[in-house]
Write a protein that binds this DNA or RNA. Structure first.
Lengths: 138, 138
DNA sequence: ACTTGACTCTGTAGTAACTACAGACTTTAT
DNA sequence: ATAAAGTCTGTAGTTACTACAGAGTCAAGT
């Protein structure tokens, strides 16, 4: 049995925003589906699978172009996987760099928030940005 | 002594890209500086201070609009600081949320990278995105 | 004086990944 | 028959820049 879905149903099934689905089509992440007589997009189960694949990729922080590559790899199960391995490794490195940056931010912000501020003159945040003093200056 | 700088010097002194400085002016983060007879921007020490303030704010992850608010607060040292406190607290919450998301990504990616993959059919990354199995499935 | 190179000017367009309409048409339910 | 909900295309807005193009300006060397 071949089920067909409108874009609204596909959106709910895949967890991807309806407008985003059309956007994915425009950037060639999703193939153009067949249309009904009146021009409505008609999707099948394959589209759901593909869209879920994309959503999981996005949740892992992969970019559109990376996901395109991964989809192509997924379509060729006989190819070696070193390209995907490489992508995963590179992406992990980027994620780790972002975590490092954010943790540095968190450290400063935590110190700022931990202090009681009074007027803007002695405000911890503004002091920090002015680089007049730091929070733990006493 | 009032020192004057061209935009190129200001860029080096503040650590902010030259084009970014013009952009900051356009979005009203930096006041329009006076011009030389030939139309060149002329900055003073105050501009350096302000731009460094902005750079530190950006390094802490604050958005342009938030920094605008902080600059106004910094210009009014007699006001209470609760607005800045609130901004810092809100921003810290956002940073913590981002860290949480990225750590979740890192966890999955680390598992994927830790495994030896062979062909795309049994590729950990593609398996994960297909949600066929997870890395630690055996 | 002239030329060369570095600097600066304005304005526009591109980046990533969507999101939000406007205005028109179609389908479904009452 | 009508109204509500769904869908269509195409464009513009979001964030914080970055990258030009094409023109004018300044400083130093010859």
């Amino acid at each position: 049995m071949i089920e067909e879905y409108t874009i609204g149903v596909l959106s709910k099934e895949s967890g991807v925003n309806l407008e985003t689905i059309r956007y994915y089509e425009k950037v060639n992440l999703l193939p153009k589906p067949p249309r009904s007589a009146s021009g409505y997009r008609r999707y099948d189960d394959n589209a759901i699978k593909r869209l879920r694949f994309i959503r999981r990729g996005r949740e892992l922080g992969f970019g559109i172009d990376e996901i395109k590559t991964l989809l192509e790899l997924a379509d060729h199960p006989d190819q070696t996987c070193s390209a995907a391995d490489k992508l995963a490794q590179m992406h992990l490195t980027e994620v780790e760099a972002k975590i490092k940056d954010l943790i540095a931010m968190r450290e400063v912000l935590t110190q700022i928030v931990a202090c009681q501020s009074h007027t803007a003159e002695h405000c911890r945040l503004i002091e920090t940005l002015d680089q007049r003093t730091c929070c733990n200056h006493d």
